[in-house]
Design a protein around this nucleic acid. Structure first.
Lengths: 132, 132
DNA sequence: CTAGGTGCAAATTTTTTGCACATGC
DNA sequence: GCATGTGCAAAAAATTTGCACCTAG
């Protein structure tokens, strides 16, 4: 496993930007924020590095919402809430809906597949879009 | 000829094709299958009608996998399994990982959002891709 | 006639990729 | 020098849309 100290300056900055937010940003969002600090940055580099992070296992995709893939540097399991209106993505505590111990093994036995991951996503309206 | 839904012939055929399969197909898949039976059909019409079905609540999106949105005419809640290699999508019995009664209300109270839906997706390798 | 549905192709949007150049060891 | 990283723009791929026509009622 590669230490992120060996990252290039731009790769490091992209990872830090992703890791420092809880907004589960898109590539575009990361690019827009970083191009102020790093004038030479290109959007393609952001895409390429987000792919690198996924392959390394230090980031994951939350899903594609409103046509844009959303990323998360918090790779420990937790459910998400997605607002159907503004596509805000909120982390939910792991305590909501915790997976049973042998759930993957049960599915494997009953369905003839191998399972190594899962995702839980709730949908609705966030506080701002709810008109409250 | 009029059917009970008042769908046009093509709309009805698209819905029937979606409802008759458990493959959770993409628009392309539906189009490829139907264009043999309905020579004049166009891909745009398939896309437009799948959107209509989603708005009507008689179909839903399973998610976007391998760049293609996948649809399901089975709108009653059930978890899905997605093969990371071939992107086959398999229905799992509702009994796996059933939601707790007041889960939505708990999330609403604790997180200040309104919740009306959720999805659970397991990932791994299907039987064919597992080399078994 | 009217309203909705469709074919067709162009446009849109997001993401990927080819290639030349840059950078660090 | 060599391998990796990057800018830039073109390409790719999926989906949406504009518009003219068509069809049912």
């Amino acid at each position: 496993m590669q230490n992120k100290r060996n990252f290039s300056a731009k790769r490091e900055a992209i990872f830090q930007e992703l890791a420092a937010t809880d907004t589960h940003p898109s590539a575009e969002w990361v690019y827009e924020r970083l191009k102020e600090k790093i004038p030479g940055l290109s959007l393609g580099t952001v895409y390429r590095n987000l792919s690198v992070f996924k392959e390394m296992g230090i980031a994951r995709s939350v899903g594609i919402f409103n046509g844009q893939e959303r990323f998360d540097a918090n790779v420990s399991y937790h459910p998400h809430f997605v607002c159907k209106t503004c596509f805000r993505i909120i982390d939910l505590p792991k305590g909501f809906y915790p997976p049973e111990k042998n759930l993957y093994r049960m599915i494997e036995r009953d369905c003839g597949v191998s399972v190594d991951d899962h995702a839980i996503t709730f949908y609705g309206l966030c506080h701002e879009c709810n008109g409250i």
